[in-house]
Design a protein around this nucleic acid. Sequence first.
DNA 1: GTCCGCATTGAACCAAGGTTCAATGCTCCG
DNA 2: CGGAGCATTGAACCTTGGTTCAATGCGGAC
Lengths: 206, 206
Amino acid sequence: MSHIPTIGLVDDEPGMLKALRRVLTAEGFHVRAFASAAEFLRGEDRAQVDCLVLDVSMPGLTGLELQEHLTREDARLPVVFLTGQGDIPMSVRAIKAGAVNFLTKPVNDTDLLAAVHAALAEARRLQDEHRALAGLRQRLATLTPREREVLRHVITGKLNKQIAADLGTSEQTIKIHRMRLTAKLGLTSVAELVRAMERLGVEPAE
Amino acid sequence: MSHIPTIGLVDDEPGMLKALRRVLTAEGFHVRAFASAAEFLRGEDRAQVDCLVLDVSMPGLTGLELQEHLTREDARLPVVFLTGQGDIPMSVRAIKAGAVNFLTKPVNDTDLLAAVHAALAEARRLQDEHRALAGLRQRLATLTPREREVLRHVITGKLNKQIAADLGTSEQTIKIHRMRLTAKLGLTSVAELVRAMERLGVEPAE
DNA sequence: GTCCGCATTGAACCAAGGTTCAATGCTCCG
DNA sequence: CGGAGCATTGAACCTTGGTTCAATGCGGAC
Protein backbone atom coordinates (compact mmCIF):
# COMPACT_ATOMS: atom_id res chain seq x y z
CA MET A 1 0.00 0.00 0.00
CA SER A 2 2.45 2.59 -1.19
CA HIS A 3 -0.06 5.37 -1.66
CA ILE A 4 -3.09 4.32 -3.68
CA PRO A 5 -4.58 1.12 -2.25
CA THR A 6 -5.28 -1.82 -4.55
CA ILE A 7 -8.48 -3.79 -4.15
CA GLY A 8 -8.60 -7.41 -5.32
CA LEU A 9 -11.92 -8.58 -6.75
CA VAL A 10 -12.79 -12.24 -7.11
CA ASP A 11 -16.10 -13.03 -8.80
CA ASP A 12 -17.12 -15.43 -11.55
CA GLU A 13 -19.58 -13.00 -13.11
CA PRO A 14 -17.81 -10.63 -15.50
CA GLY A 15 -20.64 -8.10 -15.22
CA MET A 16 -20.24 -7.91 -11.49
CA LEU A 17 -16.49 -7.46 -11.77
CA LYS A 18 -17.04 -4.63 -14.21
CA ALA A 19 -19.57 -2.89 -12.01
CA LEU A 20 -17.43 -3.21 -8.91
CA ARG A 21 -14.37 -2.00 -10.74
CA ARG A 22 -16.25 1.07 -11.87
CA VAL A 23 -17.34 1.95 -8.34
CA LEU A 24 -13.93 1.35 -6.81
CA THR A 25 -11.89 3.16 -9.43
CA ALA A 26 -14.29 6.11 -9.15
CA GLU A 27 -13.36 6.17 -5.46
CA GLY A 28 -9.71 6.40 -6.46
CA PHE A 29 -8.61 2.82 -5.81
CA HIS A 30 -6.57 0.56 -8.02
CA VAL A 31 -8.34 -2.68 -8.88
CA ARG A 32 -7.16 -6.19 -9.80
CA ALA A 33 -9.92 -8.51 -10.97
CA PHE A 34 -9.89 -12.32 -10.87
CA ALA A 35 -12.53 -14.68 -12.26
CA SER A 36 -11.92 -17.44 -9.71
CA ALA A 37 -10.18 -18.24 -6.45
CA ALA A 38 -7.62 -20.34 -8.32
CA GLU A 39 -6.81 -17.46 -10.64
CA PHE A 40 -6.19 -15.21 -7.67
CA LEU A 41 -4.03 -17.76 -5.89
CA ARG A 42 -1.68 -18.23 -8.81
CA GLY A 43 -1.75 -14.58 -9.87
CA GLU A 44 1.40 -12.53 -9.45
CA ASP A 45 -0.66 -9.38 -9.04
CA ARG A 46 -1.67 -10.90 -5.77
CA ALA A 47 1.23 -9.44 -3.83
CA GLN A 48 0.09 -5.91 -4.56
CA VAL A 49 -3.44 -6.42 -3.34
CA ASP A 50 -4.27 -4.71 -0.04
CA CYS A 51 -7.70 -6.23 0.58
CA LEU A 52 -10.15 -8.55 -1.10
CA VAL A 53 -13.78 -8.38 -2.15
CA LEU A 54 -14.94 -11.97 -2.59
CA ASP A 55 -18.00 -13.57 -4.04
CA VAL A 56 -19.02 -16.46 -1.79
CA SER A 57 -20.45 -18.88 -4.33
CA MET A 58 -18.16 -19.53 -7.24
CA PRO A 59 -17.24 -22.60 -9.26
CA GLY A 60 -14.09 -24.22 -7.90
CA LEU A 61 -13.05 -22.87 -4.53
CA THR A 62 -15.78 -20.85 -2.87
CA GLY A 63 -15.05 -17.52 -1.27
CA LEU A 64 -15.19 -19.10 2.19
CA GLU A 65 -12.67 -21.73 1.16
CA LEU A 66 -10.38 -19.10 -0.28
CA GLN A 67 -10.64 -17.16 2.98
CA GLU A 68 -9.64 -20.29 4.86
CA HIS A 69 -6.60 -20.72 2.61
CA LEU A 70 -5.58 -17.13 3.20
CA THR A 71 -5.80 -17.31 6.99
CA ARG A 72 -3.04 -19.91 6.92
CA GLU A 73 -0.65 -17.41 5.41
CA ASP A 74 1.35 -14.86 7.36
CA ALA A 75 0.27 -11.77 5.42
CA ARG A 76 -3.42 -11.99 6.32
CA LEU A 77 -5.51 -10.10 3.77
CA PRO A 78 -8.68 -8.47 5.06
CA VAL A 79 -11.72 -9.89 3.25
CA VAL A 80 -15.11 -8.39 2.43
CA PHE A 81 -17.70 -10.89 1.23
CA LEU A 82 -20.28 -10.07 -1.37
CA THR A 83 -22.85 -12.59 -2.41
CA GLY A 84 -26.07 -13.11 -4.31
CA GLN A 85 -27.54 -15.98 -2.43
CA GLY A 86 -26.09 -15.65 1.04
CA ASP A 87 -27.83 -16.81 4.14
CA ILE A 88 -27.38 -16.19 7.85
CA PRO A 89 -25.35 -19.32 8.69
CA MET A 90 -22.96 -18.45 5.87
CA SER A 91 -22.50 -14.90 7.13
CA VAL A 92 -21.96 -16.18 10.68
CA ARG A 93 -19.26 -18.51 9.49
CA ALA A 94 -17.55 -15.81 7.45
CA ILE A 95 -17.45 -13.27 10.26
CA LYS A 96 -16.28 -15.88 12.77
CA ALA A 97 -13.46 -16.65 10.36
CA GLY A 98 -12.44 -13.00 10.50
CA ALA A 99 -14.16 -11.37 7.53
CA VAL A 100 -14.47 -7.60 7.75
CA ASN A 101 -18.04 -7.66 6.45
CA PHE A 102 -20.59 -9.76 4.61
CA LEU A 103 -22.68 -7.90 2.06
CA THR A 104 -25.47 -9.03 -0.24
CA LYS A 105 -26.05 -8.26 -3.88
CA PRO A 106 -27.29 -6.00 -5.15
CA VAL A 107 -24.97 -3.90 -3.04
CA ASN A 108 -25.44 -0.26 -2.33
CA ASP A 109 -22.29 1.71 -3.28
CA THR A 110 -22.11 3.39 0.10
CA ASP A 111 -22.09 0.09 1.97
CA LEU A 112 -19.51 -1.39 -0.36
CA LEU A 113 -17.18 1.56 -0.02
CA ALA A 114 -17.61 1.66 3.74
CA ALA A 115 -16.69 -2.02 3.93
CA VAL A 116 -13.69 -1.56 1.66
CA HIS A 117 -12.46 1.38 3.70
CA ALA A 118 -12.84 -0.69 6.86
CA ALA A 119 -10.89 -3.52 5.23
CA LEU A 120 -8.12 -1.13 4.20
CA ALA A 121 -7.96 0.27 7.73
CA GLU A 122 -7.55 -3.28 8.97
CA ALA A 123 -4.87 -3.89 6.33
CA ARG A 124 -2.95 -0.85 7.52
CA ARG A 125 -3.24 -2.02 11.10
CA LEU A 126 -1.91 -5.47 10.21
CA GLN A 127 0.91 -4.00 8.19
CA ASP A 128 1.94 -1.58 10.92
CA GLU A 129 2.00 -4.43 13.37
CA HIS A 130 4.00 -6.57 10.97
CA ARG A 131 6.50 -3.80 10.27
CA ALA A 132 6.98 -3.11 13.96
CA LEU A 133 7.98 -6.71 14.51
CA ALA A 134 9.91 -7.22 11.28
CA GLY A 135 13.26 -5.93 12.56
CA LEU A 136 13.07 -7.97 15.69
CA ARG A 137 12.01 -11.08 13.80
CA GLN A 138 14.95 -10.62 11.48
CA ARG A 139 17.39 -10.37 14.37
CA LEU A 140 15.79 -13.39 15.98
CA ALA A 141 16.51 -15.34 12.82
CA THR A 142 20.24 -14.72 13.24
CA LEU A 143 20.32 -16.66 16.51
CA THR A 144 21.96 -20.07 16.45
CA PRO A 145 19.78 -23.04 17.54
CA ARG A 146 21.52 -23.15 20.88
CA GLU A 147 21.06 -19.46 21.49
CA ARG A 148 17.39 -19.77 20.68
CA GLU A 149 17.07 -22.61 23.15
CA VAL A 150 18.80 -20.62 25.86
CA LEU A 151 16.51 -17.70 25.07
CA ARG A 152 13.44 -19.87 25.60
CA HIS A 153 14.75 -20.82 29.02
CA VAL A 154 15.67 -17.25 29.91
CA ILE A 155 12.14 -15.99 29.21
CA THR A 156 10.71 -18.57 31.58
CA GLY A 157 12.68 -16.91 34.35
CA LYS A 158 15.21 -19.66 34.94
CA LEU A 159 18.61 -19.08 36.49
CA ASN A 160 21.72 -19.70 34.40
CA LYS A 161 22.51 -22.59 36.69
CA GLN A 162 19.16 -24.23 36.01
CA ILE A 163 19.41 -23.66 32.29
CA ALA A 164 22.85 -25.26 32.29
CA ALA A 165 21.47 -28.29 34.12
CA ASP A 166 18.50 -28.54 31.73
CA LEU A 167 20.71 -28.36 28.67
CA GLY A 168 23.42 -30.57 30.12
CA THR A 169 26.18 -28.01 29.89
CA SER A 170 28.04 -25.57 32.15
CA GLU A 171 26.83 -22.30 33.57
CA GLN A 172 29.63 -20.49 31.81
CA THR A 173 28.44 -21.73 28.44
CA ILE A 174 24.97 -20.42 29.17
CA LYS A 175 26.41 -17.04 30.08
CA ILE A 176 28.17 -16.86 26.74
CA HIS A 177 25.08 -17.84 24.76
CA ARG A 178 23.05 -15.39 26.77
CA MET A 179 25.51 -12.59 26.17
CA ARG A 180 25.51 -13.25 22.44
CA LEU A 181 21.76 -13.46 22.12
CA THR A 182 21.12 -10.27 24.02
CA ALA A 183 23.70 -8.56 21.83
CA LYS A 184 22.09 -9.89 18.64
CA LEU A 185 18.58 -8.92 19.70
CA GLY A 186 19.60 -5.59 21.18
CA LEU A 187 17.60 -6.39 24.32
CA THR A 188 19.46 -6.53 27.57
CA SER A 189 16.89 -6.97 30.30
CA VAL A 190 14.85 -10.08 30.92
CA ALA A 191 11.71 -7.95 30.95
CA GLU A 192 12.36 -6.70 27.42
CA LEU A 193 13.13 -10.20 26.22
CA VAL A 194 9.90 -11.57 27.69
CA ARG A 195 7.80 -8.82 26.13
CA ALA A 196 9.44 -9.12 22.73
CA MET A 197 9.20 -12.90 22.60
CA GLU A 198 5.58 -12.79 23.65
CA ARG A 199 4.79 -10.52 20.72
CA LEU A 200 6.75 -12.77 18.37
CA GLY A 201 5.06 -15.91 19.65
CA VAL A 202 8.23 -17.52 21.00
CA GLU A 203 7.11 -19.96 23.68
CA PRO A 204 8.97 -20.29 26.98
CA ALA A 205 10.69 -23.59 27.78
CA GLU A 206 8.68 -26.09 29.88
CA MET B 1 -21.64 -23.63 37.00
CA SER B 2 -21.38 -25.92 39.98
CA HIS B 3 -22.39 -29.06 38.13
CA ILE B 4 -25.58 -28.63 36.11
CA PRO B 5 -25.33 -25.55 33.89
CA THR B 6 -28.10 -22.97 33.94
CA ILE B 7 -29.28 -21.43 30.69
CA GLY B 8 -30.90 -18.02 30.71
CA LEU B 9 -33.69 -17.47 28.20
CA VAL B 10 -34.89 -14.01 27.20
CA ASP B 11 -37.84 -13.86 24.83
CA ASP B 12 -41.05 -11.88 24.83
CA GLU B 13 -43.14 -14.77 23.47
CA PRO B 14 -44.27 -17.05 26.29
CA GLY B 15 -44.79 -19.94 23.87
CA MET B 16 -41.22 -19.74 22.68
CA LEU B 17 -39.91 -19.67 26.24
CA LYS B 18 -41.95 -22.74 27.03
CA ALA B 19 -40.73 -24.64 23.98
CA LEU B 20 -37.10 -23.73 24.60
CA ARG B 21 -37.38 -24.64 28.26
CA ARG B 22 -38.70 -28.05 27.30
CA VAL B 23 -35.82 -28.77 24.93
CA LEU B 24 -33.16 -27.55 27.34
CA THR B 25 -34.48 -29.27 30.45
CA ALA B 26 -34.74 -32.49 28.44
CA GLU B 27 -31.03 -32.08 27.75
CA GLY B 28 -30.46 -31.87 31.51
CA PHE B 29 -29.92 -28.15 31.88
CA HIS B 30 -31.43 -25.81 34.43
CA VAL B 31 -33.37 -22.96 32.87
CA ARG B 32 -34.23 -19.43 33.99
CA ALA B 33 -36.71 -17.63 31.76
CA PHE B 34 -37.14 -13.87 31.40
CA ALA B 35 -39.79 -12.05 29.36
CA SER B 36 -37.61 -9.01 28.60
CA ALA B 37 -34.08 -7.70 28.75
CA ALA B 38 -35.05 -5.42 31.62
CA GLU B 39 -36.44 -8.34 33.59
CA PHE B 40 -33.16 -10.20 33.14
CA LEU B 41 -31.06 -7.21 34.13
CA ARG B 42 -32.86 -6.66 37.43
CA GLY B 43 -33.32 -10.38 38.13
CA GLU B 44 -31.40 -11.89 41.01
CA ASP B 45 -31.40 -15.26 39.28
CA ARG B 46 -29.06 -13.61 36.87
CA ALA B 47 -25.94 -14.47 38.83
CA GLN B 48 -26.54 -18.17 38.43
CA VAL B 49 -26.92 -18.06 34.66
CA ASP B 50 -24.01 -19.56 32.71
CA CYS B 51 -25.03 -18.51 29.21
CA LEU B 52 -27.87 -16.72 27.46
CA VAL B 53 -30.24 -17.50 24.62
CA LEU B 54 -31.60 -14.17 23.42
CA ASP B 55 -34.36 -13.17 21.10
CA VAL B 56 -33.14 -10.27 18.98
CA SER B 57 -36.34 -8.31 18.50
CA MET B 58 -38.15 -7.59 21.72
CA PRO B 59 -40.04 -4.64 23.10
CA GLY B 60 -37.81 -2.44 25.23
CA LEU B 61 -34.14 -3.35 24.92
CA THR B 62 -33.45 -5.59 21.95
CA GLY B 63 -31.22 -8.61 22.26
CA LEU B 64 -28.38 -6.75 20.57
CA GLU B 65 -28.67 -3.90 23.02
CA LEU B 66 -28.71 -6.29 25.94
CA GLN B 67 -25.58 -7.94 24.55
CA GLU B 68 -23.91 -4.54 24.39
CA HIS B 69 -24.81 -3.88 28.03
CA LEU B 70 -23.35 -7.22 29.04
CA THR B 71 -20.03 -6.74 27.26
CA ARG B 72 -19.37 -3.78 29.55
CA GLU B 73 -19.41 -6.04 32.59
CA ASP B 74 -16.50 -8.07 33.85
CA ALA B 75 -18.24 -11.45 33.94
CA ARG B 76 -18.95 -11.68 30.21
CA LEU B 77 -21.83 -14.08 29.54
CA PRO B 78 -21.69 -16.03 26.28
CA VAL B 79 -24.73 -15.24 24.12
CA VAL B 80 -26.62 -17.27 21.52
CA PHE B 81 -29.08 -15.29 19.44
CA LEU B 82 -32.35 -16.71 18.26
CA THR B 83 -34.67 -14.68 16.12
CA GLY B 84 -37.74 -14.82 13.95
CA GLN B 85 -37.01 -11.99 11.58
CA GLY B 86 -33.25 -11.81 11.49
CA ASP B 87 -31.27 -10.64 8.51
CA ILE B 88 -27.66 -10.84 7.45
CA PRO B 89 -26.54 -7.39 8.67
CA MET B 90 -28.01 -8.17 12.05
CA SER B 91 -26.18 -11.48 12.28
CA VAL B 92 -22.93 -9.82 11.21
CA ARG B 93 -23.27 -7.23 13.92
CA ALA B 94 -24.08 -9.85 16.56
CA ILE B 95 -21.12 -12.07 15.72
CA LYS B 96 -18.75 -9.13 15.53
CA ALA B 97 -19.93 -8.18 19.00
CA GLY B 98 -18.88 -11.61 20.20
CA ALA B 99 -22.03 -13.74 20.01
CA VAL B 100 -21.44 -17.48 19.97
CA ASN B 101 -24.04 -18.06 17.28
CA PHE B 102 -27.01 -16.51 15.54
CA LEU B 103 -29.89 -18.87 14.87
CA THR B 104 -33.25 -18.35 13.19
CA LYS B 105 -36.68 -19.52 14.23
CA PRO B 106 -38.00 -22.08 13.86
CA VAL B 107 -34.86 -23.62 15.26
CA ASN B 108 -33.91 -27.22 14.90
CA ASP B 109 -33.22 -28.77 18.34
CA THR B 110 -29.86 -30.10 17.27
CA ASP B 111 -28.62 -26.67 16.19
CA LEU B 112 -29.91 -25.05 19.36
CA LEU B 113 -28.26 -27.60 21.61
CA ALA B 114 -25.00 -27.41 19.68
CA ALA B 115 -24.99 -23.64 20.07
CA VAL B 116 -25.78 -23.87 23.78
CA HIS B 117 -23.03 -26.40 24.33
CA ALA B 118 -20.60 -24.13 22.50
CA ALA B 119 -21.71 -21.21 24.67
CA LEU B 120 -21.20 -23.26 27.81
CA ALA B 121 -17.75 -24.30 26.67
CA GLU B 122 -16.96 -20.63 26.18
CA ALA B 123 -18.37 -19.87 29.63
CA ARG B 124 -16.09 -22.48 31.18
CA ARG B 125 -13.13 -21.05 29.32
CA LEU B 126 -13.90 -17.55 30.57
CA GLN B 127 -14.41 -18.75 34.10
CA ASP B 128 -11.19 -20.77 34.12
CA GLU B 129 -9.33 -17.73 32.91
CA HIS B 130 -10.98 -15.55 35.54
CA ARG B 131 -10.25 -18.02 38.31
CA ALA B 132 -6.64 -18.38 37.27
CA LEU B 133 -6.17 -14.65 37.62
CA ALA B 134 -8.32 -14.16 40.70
CA GLY B 135 -5.69 -15.27 43.22
CA LEU B 136 -3.02 -13.18 41.63
CA ARG B 137 -5.28 -10.14 41.41
CA GLN B 138 -6.08 -10.53 45.09
CA ARG B 139 -2.41 -10.69 46.01
CA LEU B 140 -1.71 -7.67 43.82
CA ALA B 141 -4.29 -5.75 45.83
CA THR B 142 -2.25 -6.28 49.01
CA LEU B 143 0.70 -4.30 47.63
CA THR B 144 1.31 -0.87 49.09
CA PRO B 145 1.29 2.06 46.61
CA ARG B 146 5.05 2.24 46.73
CA GLU B 147 5.46 -1.46 46.09
CA ARG B 148 3.11 -1.22 43.12
CA GLU B 149 5.17 1.64 41.75
CA VAL B 150 8.39 -0.31 42.13
CA LEU B 151 6.71 -3.29 40.46
CA ARG B 152 5.82 -1.17 37.45
CA HIS B 153 9.46 -0.16 37.12
CA VAL B 154 10.71 -3.71 37.59
CA ILE B 155 8.57 -5.04 34.75
CA THR B 156 10.02 -2.46 32.40
CA GLY B 157 13.41 -4.06 32.97
CA LYS B 158 15.00 -1.26 34.97
CA LEU B 159 17.88 -1.78 37.37
CA ASN B 160 17.34 -1.13 41.08
CA LYS B 161 19.70 1.79 40.76
CA GLN B 162 17.62 3.37 38.00
CA ILE B 163 14.39 2.79 39.86
CA ALA B 164 15.87 4.45 42.93
CA ALA B 165 16.85 7.47 40.85
CA ASP B 166 13.40 7.65 39.21
CA LEU B 167 11.62 7.48 42.54
CA GLY B 168 14.10 9.74 44.31
CA THR B 169 15.14 7.24 46.93
CA SER B 170 17.99 4.86 47.66
CA GLU B 171 18.81 1.57 45.99
CA GLN B 172 18.46 -0.21 49.30
CA THR B 173 14.89 0.99 49.68
CA ILE B 174 14.06 -0.38 46.25
CA LYS B 175 15.57 -3.73 47.20
CA ILE B 176 13.31 -3.90 50.23
CA HIS B 177 10.18 -2.98 48.29
CA ARG B 178 11.15 -5.45 45.66
CA MET B 179 11.72 -8.23 48.16
CA ARG B 180 8.34 -7.58 49.77
CA LEU B 181 6.41 -7.44 46.53
CA THR B 182 7.89 -10.65 45.17
CA ALA B 183 7.06 -12.32 48.47
CA LYS B 184 3.49 -11.03 48.39
CA LEU B 185 2.91 -12.07 44.81
CA GLY B 186 4.75 -15.37 45.09
CA LEU B 187 6.68 -14.57 41.92
CA THR B 188 10.43 -14.40 42.15
CA SER B 189 11.76 -13.97 38.63
CA VAL B 190 11.37 -10.88 36.51
CA ALA B 191 10.07 -13.08 33.69
CA GLU B 192 7.20 -14.35 35.82
CA LEU B 193 6.40 -10.84 37.01
CA VAL B 194 6.28 -9.52 33.45
CA ARG B 195 4.01 -12.32 32.26
CA ALA B 196 1.68 -12.03 35.23
CA MET B 197 1.38 -8.26 35.02
CA GLU B 198 0.75 -8.43 31.31
CA ARG B 199 -2.19 -10.77 31.93
CA LEU B 200 -3.49 -8.51 34.68
CA GLY B 201 -3.14 -5.41 32.56
CA VAL B 202 -0.55 -3.69 34.76
CA GLU B 203 1.31 -1.25 32.56
CA PRO B 204 5.09 -0.83 32.80
CA ALA B 205 6.53 2.51 33.95
CA GLU B 206 7.48 5.00 31.20
C1' DG C 1 -1.05 9.06 73.49
C1' DT C 2 0.20 4.60 71.69
C1' DC C 3 0.32 1.05 68.41
C1' DC C 4 0.58 -0.42 63.64
C1' DG C 5 1.41 -0.18 58.83
C1' DC C 6 4.20 2.10 55.61
C1' DA C 7 8.35 4.11 53.68
C1' DT C 8 12.92 4.73 54.45
C1' DT C 9 18.09 3.92 55.22
C1' DG C 10 22.81 1.82 56.30
C1' DA C 11 25.90 -1.99 56.65
C1' DA C 12 27.24 -6.31 55.49
C1' DC C 13 27.19 -10.75 52.99
C1' DC C 14 26.22 -14.21 49.60
C1' DA C 15 24.33 -15.54 45.13
C1' DA C 16 23.65 -14.59 40.43
C1' DG C 17 24.36 -12.01 36.22
C1' DG C 18 27.61 -9.87 32.86
C1' DT C 19 32.22 -9.40 30.84
C1' DT C 20 36.79 -10.50 29.24
C1' DC C 21 40.77 -13.47 27.98
C1' DA C 22 42.12 -17.70 26.32
C1' DA C 23 41.27 -22.03 24.36
C1' DT C 24 39.30 -26.66 22.33
C1' DG C 25 36.47 -29.66 19.30
C1' DC C 26 33.09 -30.14 15.76
C1' DT C 27 30.95 -29.81 11.15
C1' DC C 28 30.15 -27.98 6.82
C1' DC C 29 31.90 -25.68 2.68
C1' DG C 30 34.93 -24.38 -0.97
C1' DC D 1 43.11 -29.37 3.48
C1' DG D 2 41.98 -24.84 5.56
C1' DG D 3 38.74 -21.70 7.24
C1' DA D 4 34.28 -20.18 9.09
C1' DG D 5 30.68 -20.73 12.20
C1' DC D 6 29.03 -22.99 16.18
C1' DA D 7 29.14 -25.00 20.83
C1' DT D 8 31.83 -25.50 24.57
C1' DT D 9 34.79 -24.65 28.87
C1' DG D 10 37.82 -22.49 32.63
C1' DA D 11 39.37 -18.63 35.23
C1' DA D 12 39.07 -14.25 36.95
C1' DC D 13 36.65 -9.94 37.90
C1' DC D 14 33.05 -6.60 38.55
C1' DT D 15 28.14 -5.37 38.92
C1' DT D 16 23.66 -6.32 40.37
C1' DG D 17 20.23 -8.78 42.90
C1' DG D 18 18.58 -10.89 47.21
C1' DT D 19 18.74 -11.27 52.14
C1' DT D 20 19.41 -10.16 57.00
C1' DC D 21 20.01 -7.15 61.09
C1' DA D 22 19.12 -2.89 62.99
C1' DA D 23 16.92 1.40 63.07
C1' DT D 24 14.19 5.98 62.14
C1' DG D 25 10.15 8.90 60.86
C1' DC D 26 5.35 9.50 59.57
C1' DG D 27 0.38 9.11 59.67
C1' DG D 28 -3.86 7.04 60.86
C1' DA D 29 -6.61 3.95 64.10
C1' DC D 30 -8.05 2.84 68.67
